[in-house]
Amino acid sequence: MNRLAPMGLLLTGLALPLAPLAAQHAEHGSHQAADPIAAAVAASSRTPANIARDAYRHPAETLAFFGVTPGQTVVEYSPSGGWYTEILAPLLRDKGTFYALQPTGRYLDGYRTFLAAKPAVYDRVKLVPFPDQAGQIPAGSVDTLLTFRNVHNMVMGGTETATFKAFYDLLKPGGTLGIVDHRLPESRDTALEKTSGYLKVSTIRRLAEAAGFEYAGSSEINANPKDTADWEKGVWTLPPTLRNGETDRAKYLAIGESDRMTLKFRKPAK
């Protein structure tokens, strides 16, 4: 009997760590349940290639900074390949409303195909072509309007004034405009904004404030000090585009994605 006792103690000892481990898993599941943004970021419907970019795009921190919650009406302007749609659609599916405001052009049909591929996830996404949103998204009905790495396209195409006005009209009084874009140092020639894909913080502030928005703060969540923003082929030199192909590929991968500003504006409350 004495020989069996140590084995029993050993088995008991092996069982002890399982309780804290189970508690850790329960705590993790409880944390995700308590944090709907974290749960949406962890959604199994997301594609591995997009998940790999979380290290540069910090979606949970970014959406939290912009104040996105599951019960809001949210517009994403120019979702294109659907990177943020993979997170926003499950986040807003049950309690909120999610409009994908996609400019007409080459990305519109591709985005329709993207939505159709996973109807169980994206069946409640309301796709609205831009600039034909009038009547499809009620004016003054949106809590938060988000756009990621798109303002530089507006500036390069000369559509920035009209687009910011549309943003202002869609938002409720007190609503939030959240912008992430590639950051050009303030000391650089402003002419680079037309060709490089980078913009100055002051340029975006000027555009937003001219449309009637109030500046509500910034975050360094998406900053990358390794990006010098002076590439011959613009921001597209860096990943994920890697416009130089195999030339200096390792160098650009080591730098990572661009240095990005994260800016929050607010439509004045009545």
Rank of each mutant, 00 (worst) to 15 (best):
M1I: 00
N2T: 01
A5E: 10
A5C: 03
L9V: 09
L11N: 01
L14K: 00
A15T: 06
A15F: 04
L16T: 05
L16I: 09
A19H: 10
A19Q: 06
A19S: 05
P20K: 01
H28K: 15
A34E: 15
D35G: 02
A42W: 05
S44H: 13
S44P: 05
S45G: 05
P48N: 00
A49M: 06
A49Y: 03
I51D: 12
A52F: 02
E61Y: 10
F65T: 10
T69V: 13
P70Q: 01
Q72K: 14
Q72W: 05
T73G: 07
V74E: 15
Y77M: 02
S78Q: 12
G82Q: 03
Y84K: 00
T85F: 04
E86L: 08
A89V: 08
L91M: 06
L91C: 06
T97E: 14
Y99G: 07
Y99D: 05
A100T: 08
L101E: 12
L101Q: 08
T104A: 12
T104C: 01
L108G: 11
Y111Q: 14
T113W: 03
T113K: 15
T113M: 07
A117V: 11
P119E: 04
P119L: 09
V121F: 08
R124E: 14
L127I: 11
L127H: 04
P129W: 08
F130L: 12
I137Y: 10
I137F: 11
S141G: 10
S141P: 05
L145W: 05
T147P: 01
T147F: 09
F148C: 04
N150F: 12
N150G: 10
M154G: 03
V155Y: 10
T159M: 07
T161I: 03
T163K: 04
K165D: 13
D169T: 15
G174P: 00
T176H: 01
L177S: 02
H182A: 02
L184Y: 06
A191V: 02
G197K: 11
Y198L: 09
K200Y: 08
K200A: 03
K200L: 00
S202H: 09
S202C: 05
R205Q: 07
R205L: 04
A208E: 03
A210T: 14
A211M: 07
F213W: 00
F213T: 00
A216E: 02
G217T: 04
I221Y: 00
N222W: 02
N222L: 11
K226Y: 02
T228G: 04
E232G: 09
E232N: 10
G234L: 15
V235Q: 14
W236E: 11
L238F: 12
L238P: 03
R243A: 15
R243H: 13
T247C: 05
R249W: 01
Y252S: 07
S258N: 07
L263Q: 09
K264L: 05
R266K: 12
P268N: 06
A269Y: 04
A269L: 13
